[in-house]
Computed example of a mutant assay.
Amino acid sequence: MKRFKNILLVAKAQCEHPFELEAALTLAEQNSAEITLLMVLPALSSFHLMKPERPQQDIEKDYVQHHLNELLARAGRYQQRAEIRCKVVIGTEFIQVIRSVLRNHHDLVIKTAEPASWVKRLFGGTDMHLLRKCPCPLWLLKPEVAPTYSTIAATVDFNPDDPQSVEQPLNRQILELASSIAIHNSATLHILHAWQLESAGVVLMWSDNPEQAEAEYNQSLYSSHQSGINRLKLLMAKWIGQPAYDYCKPHFELLRGDASHILAKRVEELEPGLVVMGTVARTGIAGFLIGNTAEAMLEQLNCSVLAVKPAGFVTPVTLDE
């Protein structure tokens, strides 16, 4: 599947051949895509700028140019594989990454995760900002692990009371991306969906046998989720094509329990190299635009993640300086 055409790779200094560059190059070759290497430098301290003989603007210009030369030299070794542009800016990393996406219409951001140092969590502050606010798909790679996968997990969601929700574009994007990567890696693909037992509520008030009524209610709930899964199987075959579906042989799993817990637990059992998942925007809460389930899952994962935003997502970051 040819999807990504304009890839943004978040580059780091002093890194000769990072795995994220190989991932970007492979995608670029598959999709005839362009790559932009973006390095975001922290602002110089007042100590570095205390040189009366040179204007601050000149010092910052040399600072940027030094790292740009390093980036150009790195990119030059791979120009035969893809068209690579280089850019170096000073600022806050997640803001500059998102502004580059907005300004240049990148359709994928690739970055190596930076583990949070104060907790046992793979994704640090910058990564969480990007997961919450980056408007295009974000591929966060586990450090020092090659992006080749034998097992891939994807999570999907829908409302069983609304059969049309199975067809939502976010599910389609997740399944197309996950199947494409699985096929490329000859990987096993597990597609996970969670459902939870609920109280039958008012139904029990009018029942002579409340326990049976509740059991029947939850069986009906399970059946509606299973119907959604069956519908998703047919749609996936249609979306990616029957030959690709037959080759991929995805394993659909309907899990019972709280989504944020049971999905993370199943992912831990599967030990996939990559999880493909959607993040759902909340409206009206600036700076916290990620669904509760996605947020809770991300705090428990220890593998690479490809995160996708729903259609219509608007980042709170703007191009205003």
Rank of each mutant, 00 (worst) to 15 (best):
H193L: 12
L234W: 02
L319T: 11
L9R: 05
C303G: 08
I229L: 14
A178G: 07
F94D: 06
K51Q: 15
V156C: 12
P18T: 04
D127L: 02
L138Y: 03
R81C: 09
L27G: 06
T112M: 00
P272R: 12
L175T: 04
P55L: 11
Y247Q: 15
T315R: 04
R99H: 07
S32Y: 01
D258S: 13
I152T: 07
Q242S: 10
R132P: 00
V145Y: 08
P163G: 03
S150Y: 09
F313P: 03
V203H: 14
S260Y: 12
K2A: 12
P160I: 10
Q164H: 05
I84F: 09
V276E: 09
F123C: 02
A286R: 13
R121G: 15
Q196N: 09
C15G: 05
L25A: 00
P147Y: 06
L130T: 03
R74H: 14
E253Y: 08
P147L: 10
C303F: 08
G76T: 07
R99I: 05
S260C: 07
I191E: 01
P210F: 08
P163R: 06
P310H: 14
F123N: 07
E22R: 06
R74M: 13
E268Y: 01
L263E: 00
A311Q: 12
T293F: 09
I95E: 06
S150E: 15
E167Q: 12
S223L: 14
L140I: 05
I240M: 14
H190D: 14
P169A: 12
V280S: 05
S45P: 10
S100R: 14
E299I: 02
Y63D: 03
R77M: 09
E70N: 14
I181T: 11
H184R: 14
T151Y: 08
P272L: 11
M277R: 04
V275S: 00
G257V: 10
I95T: 08
E321D: 09
I152D: 09
F47T: 14
T92M: 04
D58P: 02
H17P: 04
V89P: 03
A244N: 15
G201S: 07
S227A: 15
L37A: 05
I262H: 11
H66F: 14
K309H: 11
L301R: 00
L232Y: 08
P250L: 07
E176S: 01
I110H: 04
